[in-house]
Design a protein around this nucleic acid. Structure first.
Lengths: 343, 343
DNA sequence: CTACGATGTGGGAACGATGTCACAGCAGTG
DNA sequence: CACTGCTGTGACATCGTTCCCACATCGTAG
């Protein structure tokens, strides 16, 4: 029961040192493994530490070392599968690299993002990775000399490293897939076009249309809200137009969910009445009938890569900012087909 | 540009004090709001802090105060929607209460859980909430005087607070629903029966059968693996038996996914060939046709309640350990019907 | 035999914030 | 005019750890 000893206060390194009959300095060296310590002394100190249930005080260590073994992670919405998988990947990479993750959810709000950045600075985190909502994340952290890696989208394009996917190329080939099937009226659902993600996806869509010699119909670029319900409403009104599109390209998994529900609401059959393709894969897309054709990004890999990049920078293995592009794959399921009455 | 000042080192409270022409003590009081400070002095200190971009050093504060404003959260698998929603709820409640969440994913491994507990102790977190994997989480933390709230399942039933759902009652009424439809061969898929969750769900299932005067057929209580793929395999072999069950009761969302895929693999129609009901709701269950009837637990509410309970304990508003039971609701969709050939 | 590097140990000063304590000024009261 | 009580401020010790430095011992090369 020795290790279950429950003293009133927590054991400090001083007590460990006394129990082992050495000085604090020696105990510190023995436990941290830096500097000279005789092997038998090290063993004695280790035993004493175990006996007393000693756990290092990270706050004292961080204060002395002027940096913690913490990595800050900010995401926009943990309930969204994309972000939770990202966080899972980041968590795993942190653990592998010996860091502890501090996860904050900014709900997509700039104010929450700013508060998160301040929290990270206060905690003296070693670095931060996140899916930024504004340019202020990187700006604020840079001012405080905290390394940042932007993931999924970029705001500080040339000052910090980033891990992204090639949104433009993926959106282009997705659109080309629909064009090849014969679709001419292809609607693009996007929640925003201010970030690199939305902007690049819109650009890829436009690239494909242009290459096919088709004019871009602005009424087919539909701005939706941020959640599935808003997307459903937008898709319903889109699909009720007399000249309704023959295919929908949903900008992310939530918008795809909205589009799917909209089609169900209106009694439209996928892919017979309308084709659907999604940017961003989600578990439900392989469970419904037909399955939803989607551009799969691997958010877990993005999270892992973001932390790995950060850790490399912390280790000084990196010169300037770098950009990692995580590959995407198109998963063909059954939700796309030739349009029944081609335009 | 004053606040964008980027000095080589971070500003300390001493520098703020000097800039404002007061002592460190006064600056500390002015910023933290405790003790007497003249209003004009407070304003001057605030201005100086802003000017210098001062952010308090949480490591120094925690060291001095012997406790941090951190709450540790452990979950078993962030990629699982149940846990990510739980984490989202916990994150939100932490933020509301002025705490910062440190989130660790133990992948369901006891060793990782122990490591997480040690990390929390090292960080001097104010308290911990989590979905425990073993009794050692609470035991270790109790030894170090760190308050814990167990969520979803319990290991330290009478020593720490918990936030759970009434698994037994919910499983019983779910089973009763199937019995009322005329099902007599109802299979129960569970990944474990060692924790309170699996044990209580099995007990509720047994309660219902007993009340209906039906014998319990052990071969219908199917142990699956931990993931959807293992559940699919188990369900496939179950549904291939000559005396196959007319209804499946899946113990959680992953097992329901496996069961759904198994039915699809075998070309069995739900609910015509087999009824399906799930413990634990998930987004896909309302997107597939037919929708999956499910017991909805609100994991976000569980996360919120767990943190709220913990914070109440930290504030000393609580006598002994308490138990919060978060209500569940049964969502009827289309996956259950009368059996075609009743036993 | 001395000088020197390698090994091993301990003393003491930080790291940055907080909070106790002493003390000063000032108003109101007996 | 003493006194009490309130407001306001600063000096200083403290939290637990690390790490720089001084010092001791030992083996070996010159």
């Amino acid at each position: 029961m020795s290790t279950t000893e429950s003293t009133a206060r927590r054991a400090t390194i001083k007590e460990v040192a006394e129990a082992a009959g050495v000085s604090r300095s020696t105990a510190s060296r023995a436990l941290s493994g830096t500097g000279y310590v005789a092997e038998n002394v090290r063993a004695r100190v280790r035993a004493a530490a175990k006996e007393l249930g000693y756990v290092v005080d990270a706050t004292a260590r961080s204060l002395k070392q002027q940096s913690s073994r913490l990595v800050g992670v900010v995401v926009s919405d943990l309930r969204n599968a994309f972000y939770s998988a990202f966080a899972a990947g980041a968590a795993h990479a942190c653990r592998t690299a010996g860091y502890t993750m501090v996860l904050l959810d900014d709900r997509g709000h700039t104010e929450d993002e700013t508060a998160a950045a301040e929290t990270f600075v206060a905690l003296r985190v070693a670095g931060v990775v996140g899916t930024p909502v504004s340019a202020s994340l990187s700006a604020f952290l840079a001012r405080h000399r905290v390394p940042v890696v932007e993931a999924d989208r970029r705001f500080a394009e040339d000052s910090v490293s980033a891990v992204v996917v090639d949104n433009r190329a993926a959106a282009r080939s997705t659109t080309e897939h629909l064009l090849a099937l014969g679709h001419r009226r292809i609607a693009l659902l996007l929640d925003e076009t201010d970030w690199t993600t939305g902007r690049d996806r819109a650009a890829g869509y436009a690239d494909a249309l242009r290459a096919a010699g088709l004019p871009e119909d602005p009424s087919l670029k539909v701005p939706t809200g941020w959640d599935a319900e808003a997307a459903r409403a937008a898709a319903v009104s889109l699909l009720q137009r007399p000249d309704r599109p023959t295919a929908l390209f949903a900008g992310n998994n939530l918008l795809a969910e909205g589009a799917w529900r909209a089609a169900a609401d209106l009694g439209l059959s996928i892919p017979d009445d309308v084709s659907l393709v999604a940017f961003d894969d989600a578990p439900w897309m392989s469970m419904v009938t037909p399955g939803v054709t989607a551009v799969r990004q691997d958010p877990e890999a993005i999270g892992r890569a973001a932390v790995t990049t950060l850790v490399a920078e912390l280790a000084g293995e990196q010169r300037g900012p770098s950009t990692v592009v995580v590959p995407t794959t198109m998963i063909h399921r059954g939700s796309t087909a030739r349009p029944t009455q081609p335009a």
